[in-house]
């Protein structure tokens, strides 16, 4: 364990070194901030895609139509049979009259001429259940099970388009995670090179420390603290910039026509995740970057 006096000394040395090597520290800070900004950008995209996917999954519904001659008791039984299926989350029942009204007033609103040939007596609809599924991935299987139920005329499944959206979103999410990992590795390499320059400038000091009996840990600790501090400040700056950008974009989104179709994660929900991600990544970049660059100069 690092004693308190050594810990304090390492911390004060790290601060002094940052000031002494001002330009190099600024270069490291700038690099970390840029890398974290890009990582943050992909994180924001991934988190929001995940959120939107969740919303699409929640809207995963199929419509089931019942034969004209089914009795009221049979209709109720069908409801129970539907609920017994494992992928069914909830159901709501619509009479054919309700569906007719809905079609007339909502679906063909403004184009009433298309419904002119139909009257309540000549209602083209039949009684129906709207079924919300638990998991869209099993929708085809569930539809097949629903079609097996007696007195069911047909089941309307509009999940193909939704499925495509979800597949695309999954691909983008996987791609984002890969990009984030690559960027994280790239940041470590860039930071370690920047720190290596700092270490190279201070090789004389490291050499002297070795000769007078400093352990590798004693020598390494201030550099690692320095890496952590640069990573931490980089995280704060990039967090501030991403927050500002997100809040501005969110305002634009809320006023846009897309806001009715889906929601974005609110800043208050996003900020803690992003904050932790930035600080962990920033410190990690600092620690790993400094450790890698130190290795060569400790062999004296």
């Amino acid at each position: 364990m690092l004693s308190l006096s050594k810990f304090k000394y390492s911390l004060s040395q790290a601060k002094k070194n940052m000031i002494r090597n001002g330009l190099m520290s600024i270069a490291s800070l700038f690099t970390t901030t840029c890398c974290l900004l890009i990582i943050g950008l992909f994180a924001v995209i991934t988190i929001n895609l995940n959120f939107i996917t969740g919303q699409i999954k929640d809207q995963c519904e199929v419509q089931l139509y019942i034969a004209e001659d089914a009795s009221d008791e049979r209709v109720s039984q069908i409801g129970d049979e539907i609920l017994a299926l494992s992928n069914v989350k909830e159901i709501s029942f619509y009479t054919k009259e309700e569906l007719f009204e809905y079609a007339k007033n909502d679906v063909f609103d403004g184009r009433e001429e298309l419904m002119e040939s139909y009257t309540e007596e000549d209602n083209p609809f039949s009684d129906s259940y709207r079924i919300t599924l638990n998991d869209i991935a099993y929708s085809e299987q569930t539809v097949a099970e629903l079609e097996q139920i007696a007195d069911v005329t047909h089941v309307e499944n509009n999940q193909d388009a939704t499925g495509m959206v979800l597949t695309a979103s999954n691909t983008v999410q996987k791609f984002s995670v890969i990009i984030m990992i690559i960027l994280l590795i790239a940041s470590v390499v860039i930071i370690s090179n920047t720190v290596r320059l700092t270490v190279f400038n201070r090789r004389k000091e490291i050499n002297i420390m070795k000769y007078i009996g400093a352990t590798d840990r004693f020598i390494r600790t201030p550099f690692i603290f320095e890496g952590i501090m640069i990573g931490f400040f980089g995280a704060l700056i990039s967090f501030g910039l991403i927050s500002w950008g997100y809040i501005s974009l969110y305002d634009v989104f809320v006023q846009s026509e897309f806001s009715g179709a889906f929601d974005l994660v609110t800043y208050l929900n996003l900020a803690p995740v992003l904050g932790v991600l930035f600080i962990v990544c920033g410190c990690l970049i600092g620690i790993v970057g400094s450790s890698i660059s130190m290795r060569k100069y400790l062999n004296v």
């Binding site: 004389k204 050499n207 070795k210 000769y211 004693f218």
Partner: peptide, 16 residues
């Protein structure tokens, strides 16, 4: 490092 702490070292080029 612990061995080196038992000794003091002085070089020609001072190493300050």
């Amino acid at each position: 490092p612990y061995l080196r702490r038992k000794m003091g070292v002085v070089f020609q080029d001072f190493r300050l």
